[in-house]
């Protein structure tokens, strides 16, 4: 359970998101053909309905949270992130973004080995030895399984090619 303040913010956030979709994204990014014989067949018809439903639900969330009795703070879950946690989340985010951009350059096997090792270090636990072995063996095993058995061309990258 979240605190009342957080719930109100979620409700408002949902409303903002829905309004943004309704009045900016849909008019700008859904092309409507010149002739639409029946209104319900327009490409924007369903997205608009969905956005309205979400908007109304956002309002309901806000209202309900505002009217609800105040939850004792002791019971509510805390959404705040400690400094150490924040740093780790940032590092993890960087690793995820890095995976995507490194894939075409290094190839999937090498990227996954590096990502595995980085995550292992980030988690800060034990089993380093086994972890490093897994970091090398797992992507290689998956590579051979997918290319040789399943016939999927795993991206190879431009530096070192595997057989």
């Amino acid at each position: 359970m979240l605190s009342r303040r957080d719930e109100i913010l979620i409700g408002l956030g949902v409303m903002v998101l829905a309004a943004f979709t309704l009045w900016w994204i849909i008019p700008n990014f859904i092309a409507t053909p010149r002739r639409v014989p029946i209104k319900a067949l327009s490409p924007a018809f369903w997205p608009k309905i969905i956005a309205w439903v979400v908007l109304i639900c956002g309002a309901a969330l806000t209202l309900r949270a505002a009217l609800a009795p105040k939850t004792p703070n002791a019971v509510a879950d805390d959404l705040s992130v400690s400094r150490a946690e924040g740093l780790r989340l940032l590092a993890l985010g960087a690793i995820l973004v890095g995976i995507y951009f490194a894939l075409p350059i290094l190839g999937m096997v090498w990227v996954c080995m590096i990502a595995f090792a980085l995550l292992l270090l980030l988690s800060g636990g034990g089993n380093l030895g086994w972890g490093l072995v897994t970091a090398v063996v797992l992507p290689l095993a998956l590579y051979f399984f997918f290319t040789k058995v399943a016939g999927v061309a795993i991206p190879q990258g431009q530096i070192v090619r595997l057989p």
Partner: peptide, 13 residues
């Protein structure tokens, strides 16, 4: 701490 990185690698492949 081995399982979760492994899951990520598995998901990417």
């Amino acid at each position: 701490n081995l399982l979760f990185p492994g899951v990520l690698v598995l998901c990417v492949f």
